[in-house]
Amino acid sequence: MKILVVCGSGVGSSLMVSMNIKAILKELNIDNVEVNNTDLASASPTMADVVVIGKDLSNSLTGFNDVIVLNSIIDKKELNEKIKEMLTRKNII
């Protein structure tokens, strides 16, 4: 499975969030999930199964089926809950 994290420029905040997601996956011993980050313009539905994005940008993102919207991109607790919920939903954990 592939997770794509999206932010305005695709180099700053999205890299941070993707590093945090990788840490969560490592903690759960999951190694078959790939995490990448990119900008709004480059993001396309073929690139990932799940997209993670901050609340402030979520309106600008269209065409994706499975989107996780974060109220706060620095809140690791929120990220942890939402990623685990998604993994459970996808029968990965």
Partner: peptide
Amino acid sequence: PAFKGFSDKLVPNAKPALDCPIVFP
């Protein structure tokens, strides 16, 4: 990620300095 990995090990109580959109919300 490598840089963060080193600093996590070497600097106790480090504060991450992050990109500006973190203050937008």
